[in-house]
């Protein structure tokens, strides 16, 4: 990564992450197909909900014919971490038009968010519309196309888990996390490692009492509070 905030640099920096989304997108298409959804429905789910891992839950609820409102509420809860992502990115676009803000928000996803956060370390804390919009668009198109490919491949592949494709997105987050830790200049290394360790503890304990649909959101809210707390202690 470098300080350049252009469409070209966004394409160059987003392409490596495409494979993470490709893997999980294809896996989603395969799972949807196995649950009896048609390729067009799978395509529409990815294009309209654009919820990453949340869509796996939506599929399983659809397959059991759950009430519409309970599916919508569950999807909202799983995806409500998007509120935190948007809240973190939005200050960098405060001075831009409302339309630009809505466009950035509409296609923002974990992957482009993480890339954007990484980019800030190289650009003197700046982000702009062309760069993030391009990263967003690439992630979106990859997700939608990969889901469709998976749905069509579903006719030929019986047990998708066999190939380890479902690990693509976890591997991507491990990579993005490591790159973030070594690049982040706002938080020192020891503090970051401490917060990551605390997050592991919170996740473990959270799994006992918090339904998986809410786990990441609750852990993130509490983990960030602990982060602020430890930063204050170490400053004194």
């Amino acid at each position: 990564m470098n300080a350049e905030l252009t469409i070209k640099s966004a394409i160059r920096e987003t392409l490596p992450t495409v494979f993470g989304y490709l893997g999980i997108g294809v896996a989603f298409g395969l799972v949807g197909h196995a649950a009896g959804l048609s390729p067009i429905i799978i395509f529409l789910m990815s294009a309209i909900i654009y919820g990453g891992s949340a869509q796996f839950i939506t599929v399983s609820l659809l397959a059991t014919s759950s009430p519409i409102l309970s599916i919508i509420a569950t999807t909202f809860l799983i995806n409500s971490r998007m509120i935190l992502l948007s809240l973190t990115i939005a200050p960098y676009f405060e001075h831009k038009s409302l339309t630009d803000n809505i466009l950035i928000g509409t296609l923002l996803t974990d992957e482009s968010f993480a890339l954007g956060m990484n980019k800030l370390n190289y650009t003197d804390n700046q982000l702009n519309f062309p760069w993030l919009n391009t990263a967003n668009l690439i992630a979106y198109l990859t997700w939608v196309m990969a889901s469709l490919i998976g749905a069509l491949l579903g006719n030929f592949i019986q047990n998708p888990a066999r190939f380890g494709l479902d690990f693509a997105i976890v591997a991507m987050f491990i990579g993005l996390l490591y790159l973030q830790v070594i690049a982040d200049k706002r938080l020192n290394y020891l503090l970051q490692v401490t917060v990551i360790g605390l997050t592991l503890g919170l996740t473990y304990l959270g799994l006992i009492i918090i339904p998986s649909s809410l786990l990441v959101l609750v852990v993130t809210i509490v983990g960030c509070i602990l982060g602020v707390f430890f930063k204050k202690i170490w400053r004194h």
């Binding site: 973030q180 990551i196 996740t203 799994l207 998986s212 786990l215 990441v216 960030c224």
Partner: peptide, 21 residues
């Protein structure tokens, strides 16, 4: 803003760790 500066590492760790159990 300080709170939000922790969101990236915490959310990515949480997504990773929750897959380990």
């Amino acid at each position: 803003l300080e709170y939000l500066s922790f969101v990236p590492i915490v959310i990515m760790s949480a997504l990773w760790f929750s897959s380990l159990f």
